[in-house]
Design a protein around this nucleic acid. Sequence first.
DNA 1: CGAAGCCTAGACAGATCTGTCTGCTATTGT
DNA 2: ACAATAGCAGACAGATCTGTCTAGGCTTCG
Lengths: 195, 195
Amino acid sequence: MSAASLRGSTRKASARDRLLSAADELFYAEGVHTVGIDRIIDRAGVAKASLYSAFGSKDELVRAYLQRRHEARQARILSGLERFETPRDRLLGVFDVLAETAATPGFRGCAFYNASAESPAGSVVEQISDHNRAWLRGLFVELARDAGAKDPEALAAQLVILYDGTSVGARMDRSPAAAATARTMAATLLDAATA
Amino acid sequence: MSAASLRGSTRKASARDRLLSAADELFYAEGVHTVGIDRIIDRAGVAKASLYSAFGSKDELVRAYLQRRHEARQARILSGLERFETPRDRLLGVFDVLAETAATPGFRGCAFYNASAESPAGSVVEQISDHNRAWLRGLFVELARDAGAKDPEALAAQLVILYDGTSVGARMDRSPAAAATARTMAATLLDAATA
DNA sequence: CGAAGCCTAGACAGATCTGTCTGCTATTGT
DNA sequence: ACAATAGCAGACAGATCTGTCTAGGCTTCG
């Protein structure tokens, strides 16, 4: 086989991967602006030159961090929904997955909103956030249609609000209780939207 | 009258007030961590020494900024609800007021959440945020009880999620549309909670 | 008139942040 | 064996941030 095709993804854990993991923990826990480069290379056990050779700038590291969060959220939700059978259960299942996430130790709300709150208006954060939100909204539209909603777009808009509100509530109240509440609300609204 | 009793609240606008106004605009628009002291004294047209003589530290200025936001939100909601007659309209009216706020140019979501997102875990921001959230939740409990909800606490928990979700959605999607959606949801949930 | 407060302008100290650069070591493919 | 690659360690530059301090101006009241 061509050895070149493996490079960079083999070996223990490349500097790039360790940097991404360290950035993920620190940026999410303390904020992208608060955490400095030095803390990240320290935790990753990597030289500063390696960071700049791999990412070029802190901004690009932030973008990679959010990109990774985006993919992780997609994977977490999609794989979490596989266990459900009926369309209705799958739609409500998004809130079951969210409940698990919100109960995770160290949960600090939505990484995209958090990063957005400390970034200037037209920054790199905005693009990825938009992308992530568009995906989630699209998922809800699909699930709403499958579940027989008369107006899937309208129901999806409602579910996005529930998702966002749960995320905020769980973070600010330091309790995952909001997720269960939101699931109940989603069930009520789904009933009203299919009747 | 005792002249001393007027001092500090009279005159054009004291350095303290101008500082608070400048901090309010800049902190809300760009974030408490991003905006430096120099930008604030610049906009306020005030000497740096005056800031430190009035507030003692940037942290204390942040606290005063959030305290002011808290009082402004209370006043805005309470006065906005006066125009409604029935308990049901008053409850839903919270989302009418929120719709107006979210449509304001320069709306950037919840000042408390934004500040919290860029502050360490146990900071001064947390206390004021908790205080603000407790007040809002209490208001919703009252309104829910007046509107005849069978379980006012439960309905209030739902309404808080709607409020938070609207705030996030309006900011991240750069559109106040979520507020109208949330009002519809609130009506549906209120009907379900009084039936 | 003259003292007391409040304010301004700006230099300064000390810390911290991003990003660059120089040397050195270990591994890997040919 | 040899060259290329990737990574490490850390000094360094330049900017920026919080907070302190000096020196002086303007108003107000006794």
